[in-house]
Design a protein around this nucleic acid. Sequence first.
DNA 1: GATGAATGAGTCTTCATTCAT
DNA 2: GATGAATGAAGACTCATTCAT
Lengths: 216, 216, 216, 216
Amino acid sequence: MKIADKHEKIIQSSIKVFARNGFFNSRIAEIAKEANVADGTIYLYFNNKYDILVTIFEEEIGKIIARVKQELALIESPAEKLERFAALHLSLVEDNRDLAEIIQVELRQSSKFMKEYRNKKFAEYVNIISQIVRHGQELGVFKADVMPGIFKRAFFGALDEMSRFWVLSSRKKYSVSTAAKQISDFFINGVLISSGPDKESTGKENTNQGSKNIAK
Amino acid sequence: MKIADKHEKIIQSSIKVFARNGFFNSRIAEIAKEANVADGTIYLYFNNKYDILVTIFEEEIGKIIARVKQELALIESPAEKLERFAALHLSLVEDNRDLAEIIQVELRQSSKFMKEYRNKKFAEYVNIISQIVRHGQELGVFKADVMPGIFKRAFFGALDEMSRFWVLSSRKKYSVSTAAKQISDFFINGVLISSGPDKESTGKENTNQGSKNIAK
Amino acid sequence: MKIADKHEKIIQSSIKVFARNGFFNSRIAEIAKEANVADGTIYLYFNNKYDILVTIFEEEIGKIIARVKQELALIESPAEKLERFAALHLSLVEDNRDLAEIIQVELRQSSKFMKEYRNKKFAEYVNIISQIVRHGQELGVFKADVMPGIFKRAFFGALDEMSRFWVLSSRKKYSVSTAAKQISDFFINGVLISSGPDKESTGKENTNQGSKNIAK
Amino acid sequence: MKIADKHEKIIQSSIKVFARNGFFNSRIAEIAKEANVADGTIYLYFNNKYDILVTIFEEEIGKIIARVKQELALIESPAEKLERFAALHLSLVEDNRDLAEIIQVELRQSSKFMKEYRNKKFAEYVNIISQIVRHGQELGVFKADVMPGIFKRAFFGALDEMSRFWVLSSRKKYSVSTAAKQISDFFINGVLISSGPDKESTGKENTNQGSKNIAK
DNA sequence: GATGAATGAGTCTTCATTCAT
DNA sequence: GATGAATGAAGACTCATTCAT
C-alpha cells in the first residue's frame, strides 16, 4: 500500500468512526482497527488525534469547495446559482453522510482552534453565497437592501439545518430535490426584485404557480 | 442555602463552564468551583456529568419555549408571528449567550441520548414555526405548496446560523433587529401569496419578460 | 492518615523504588503499590514523576545539610571539621543508602533541570567544605596556596566515590570510620602547613599524636 | 563504507547523542540520523540500544586504559606516576568531553548490568592507582598504613568530581594542569613518608611549598 | 446534607525493534 | 547489506465518581 493510500485510509476510517461516536468518544484504537493499521501507524501520518480532525476539514472541505465552485461557474443567472447551490449542497451531504455529520457536529466544538478553522475554510464556502448575492445586486436583479452577510448565513443555515435532519434521521421524509427547491425558492423570492408578472397577470399565463417558478 | 438554590446554582455554573470549554473539555471540579460547592455535592443533585447537560436542556429550553409561546399568542397574523419569532429567538440568544452556545454545540453531539433529546424538547420548539405556517395556509395567506416541515427547518436554521455568528464573534456586525427583519422578510416573501404589486413597483414596467429570463 | 503522612509516605516509597530501579526504570504504579495508595493519589501530591525526584532532593538534601552544619558548628579546628565532615558524610550515606544511591545516580543525569539542582542545593553542601578551608587559611593553619574551589571538589569527590563503593557493594570491606579517617588524613596532610616533625620523627615533642592532633 | 567504519560511526554518533540527552532520553532514531544511517541499520551492528552503551564502555574505556598504562610505564617514581595519572585523566576528560559525560552519568545507572561493567573495565582503570600505591609502599616511599583500596577510590573520586565540574560547566575556572597539580599534591602529601625537610625543619626553611616539589 | 481526599479504569502517545522490499 | 514503514507493548497521567468523616 502506498503512503498516500494509508493516509487516505486513516482519514476515511476516521470519518467513519468520528461520525459514529463523535470526536471525543472516538478512540485512536478504534480508528486504527477500522483502518487495519497499528495504533502507532496513525502517528506516522498525523501528529495527534486532533490533527486528524483538522486534516479532515482541510482536505475534505477543500474538495467540496472546489467541486461547488466548479459547478457554479457554469451558470450565469444568480438566482439559478442559488438554486444550484442548494441542490448541490444537499446532494453532497447525502453522498457524504459521515463527513457531513462530522462537520455538523465538530465544527461547532468550541475549541479555540476549531473556531479558527471555521473562519477559514468554512468562511470560504459560505462566501460563495454572498458573492452570488452581490453579483445579483450588481446586475440589478436582487434587491439592493438585502445584506449579503446576513443572507449568506441565513441561506446556509437553512440548508444546514435541513442537512442535519437528513443526517440524523435514518429515513428521509423529503427528497433532496424537493427540499432544495423549496428552500432556494424561499430565498429567491426574498431577494428577487418583484418584477410584476403576478400583478398584471392577465389570466392567460399560468405563471401564477408563482414567482417560484418564474424565478428560475 | 435551600436545596432548590443549590440545584440552580450548579445548573447556572455548568452553563457557564460548558459554554466556556464545551461539554467534554469541562471538568466537574471546575463546575464545583464555579458553584462554590464541593465536587461531591454535585452528585447529590445530579446522577452524573451528562445528567447535568440533559437537565440544562430540559429546564432551560422548557423556559424558553414557554416564553416564546406566550409572546406569540398575543399576535394574530401568521406573517407577523414569524417576524416576531425571529426577533424573539435572536434576542433570547443575545440574552442567554452561554446557554445558546451550549445548545448550538452540544445539541449536535451525536450521542444516542442527545439525538433523542433533539427529538423531544427541541422538536417542540421548532414545531412552533410549522404551526404558524399551517395556520397561515389555513387562513389562505400562505402558499399552499410550501411544506411546513421543510419551512420550519429552513427558518430555524437561518436564525440558528445567524445566532452562531453572534455567539462566536465577539463584536456584532449587525443588530439583532436588523438581522431578524432581514431573515423574516426573506421567508415571509417566500411564503406569502403575492397579493399584488410589490410596494416599490410603480406600474408600467416591462420587467415582465419576467424575472424568469432576467434571473437566469 | 494525615496529608503530611501521605506526602512523606510517597517520598519514602519513591526513594526505595528509585534506588532499586533508577528513575527511568521506575514505574509510578510501583511507587503507588509500595506506598499503598492508588496511582492517581500520587498526582494529588506531586505534579509528575519528575517532580517527585526533585522533591526528594529538595527535602532530603535539605535535611542533611542542616544536620551537617549543625554538627560542624560544635567544632573549632578546621582540620577536625574536615575529619568530622568525612565521618559524618559516610555515616549519613550508610544510614540512608537508598537516598544516597539516588543522589549518586540521578544527580548526574544530564537533564537541564537536574543540572540546575546540582547548582543549588548541592552546591550549598559542597561549599561547607570550601568554607572550612578558607577558615583554616585565615587562621594560618592551612596552606595559602590551596585553592578552596578545587579542594572542595576533590574532597567531596573522594568521599563520594567511597560512598558509591558502599552503596553498590553489598558487603563492606572497610568500616566507615576507617575510610573516613584515611580519606580525611590524606587531605589534611595535604593542606596543613607542616608545622614540625612528622609523627615518625623521633624527637621528643608530644605533637606526635600526629598531624591530625596537631591540626586541632 | 566498510563495516568497521559503520560500526565506528554509530558508536561515535551514540557518544554524541547520549552525552547530549542521557541514555534514556536518547532515541535510536536520533542516533541513526546523526550517523547518517537508517534506524534498522543500527540493529545490524548492535543487538539493542543498551548494547551500544555497553560497547562504548568496552571499546572506549579500553582505549583509555591502554593509553594511560602506556604513558605511566615510562615513569619510575610512584609519586610522579600519581601526578601524571591525574594530569592524564583530566586531559583525557577534556579531550573526550562527550565520552566523559556518558561515563560519569551512565556508569552510575543502577541497572544490574551496568554494575557488572563497573566491576570489570572500570575496576581495571582504578586499579592502576592502587598498584602505584602498592609499588610506592614496597619501595618504602609511601606510608605503609595507607590502604590502597581506599586510596584508589579517594584519588579517583577527587579527579572524577573535578571532571564533572569540567563537563558540566561551559567555562573552566581552573586549568587542567592547575587542578591536576593541586589534587595530586593533596594526595601525595598524604601518602609520602615525610622524608625530611619537614622533619628536620629548623624553622626557617621555605621548603614547605614543600612535599609537592619533593614528591616528584 | 456537605465535603474533598482517594480511587483506578481508561487512553493517548512514544519508541525500540522487526521485516518486507 | 541497507532501508524505513510498520508494529504494538507499555506507561504517565486524567478525571468522573465514591465514601468515610
